[in-house]
C-alpha cells in the first residue's frame, strides 16, 4: 500500500503540493487528472523519491520513502516508473536496455537478465525487436520498451507520468493497450493521464488535482458523471 500523508512540496518559494492525503491499495488502478502545472508529475516524483518533500510523509509497504535510513535504490525497484519521454538508452539494444538494471542493480547473471528482458519484451509485444537499437523503434514501441524496462525489476507498483502525451495520436492506442493489460493482470498503478477514456474505463478511482490540491477523488462514475467540485466540472467540460 502507498500511504501519502499531508505532503507539502515547494520549489523554492513556489508551493506545488499543498497537503495531499491519499492511500493507494494493492491492486488498485488510480488515475490522476488535472490541468497543467497542478502538481501531478511532482506527486509521482515524490513517491519514488526523485523529489524531496518539505512536510508530511510517504510510505510504501510501510517503508518511509523520505526517511534518512531508507535504501532508496532498493525501494525504487519496487516502484516502476514510466515517463512522458521514453528515455531509451540509445547505446544499448532493446534487450540490453531491459536487461541492464536486473544485471547491475539486482546482480543477476547475464543469461538470467537476458531471459527476464526477453520475457518482458514479449509481454509488451516487442518480442520480435530484441536486437535492434531504440533509434529503429517508433515512439510507441520505445514507450513499451520503457514499460518493459521498468517491469524487469519486478515492481509491485507502477507509476505512469503521461505515458502517451508525447506520442503521435496513432501510436497512443498500443501503449494504452499495454497499460490496460497490466491493469488486468492486477498491477497496482498510479497513472497521471490526459486520456479520459482510459481514466474512465480502466481505473478504480480517479483523482482530480487543482493547483497543488487534490480537489476530488472517487470512482470514475462519480468524477465523470457527478463531480462535486466546480473546478473538476470545468476541467472536464474543457477536455471533452
Amino acid at each position: 500500500m502507498i500511504e501519502i500523508r499531508d505532503i507539502h512540496k515547494y520549489f523554492g518559494s513556489l508551493q506545488v503540493l499543498k497537503g495531499i492525503d491519499l492511500n493507494v491499495e494493492k491492486g488498485e488502478v488510480l488515475s490522476v487528472i488535472g490541468a497543467s502545472g497542478s502538481g501531478k508529475s511532482t506527486l509521482l516524483y515524490c513517491i519514488n523519491g526523485l523529489e524531496k518533500i518539505q512536510q508530511g510523509s510517504i510510505r510504501v509497504d510501510d517503508v518511509d520513502v523520505h526517511a534518512k535510513g531508507t535504501d532508496i535504490n532498493q525501494l525504487r525497484q519496487n516502484l516502476g516508473m514510466v515517463f512522458q519521454q521514453w528515455n531509451s538508452f540509445p547505446h544499448l539494444t532493446t534487450i540490453e536496455n531491459v536487461a541492464l538494471s536486473p544485471r547491475i542493480v539486482k546482480k543477476k547473471s547475464r543469461a538470467e537478465a537476458r531471459d527476464i528482458a526477453a520475457a518482458q519484451l514479449k509481454h509488451v509485444g516487442l518480442g520480435d525487436k530484441l536486437d535492434v537499437y531504440p533509434s529503429a523503434l517508433s515512439g510507441g514501441q520505445q514507450q513499451r520498451l520503457a514499460i518493459a524496462r521498468a517491469l524487469a525489476m519486478e515492481p509491485e507498483y507502477m507509476l505512469f507520468d503521461e505515458a502517451t502525451s508525447a506520442l503521435d495520436p496513432e501510436l497512443v492506442g498500443e501503449v494504452l493497450d499495454t497499460m490496460r493489460l497490466l491493469a488486468e493482470e492486477g498491477m497496482t498503478m498510479i497513472c497521471v493521464t490526459h486520456e479520459m477514456g482510459f481514466a474512465r474505463d480502466v481505473s478504480d478511482r480517479v483523482a482530480f488535482f487543482h493547483e497543488g490540491i487534490m480537489e476530488e477523488i472517487g470512482p470514475p462514475k462519480q468524477i465523470f458523471g457527478d463531480a462535486i467540485s466546480a473546478h473538476t466540472q470545468k476541467f472536464l467540460a474543457n477536455v471533452r
Binding site: Q77, M81, F83, A146
Partner: peptide
C-alpha cells in the same frame, strides 16, 4: 535530466547511472 531520472527510477545508484548510462 530526464534520462538520468529514468536510470535512477530503475534503482540504479548515482555511480551506476554514471558508469552505465
Amino acid at each position: 535530466r530526464p534520462m538520468r531520472r529514468a536510470a535512477r527510477s530503475l534503482g540504479m545508484s548515482y555511480w551506476q547511472d554514471m558508469r552505465y548510462v
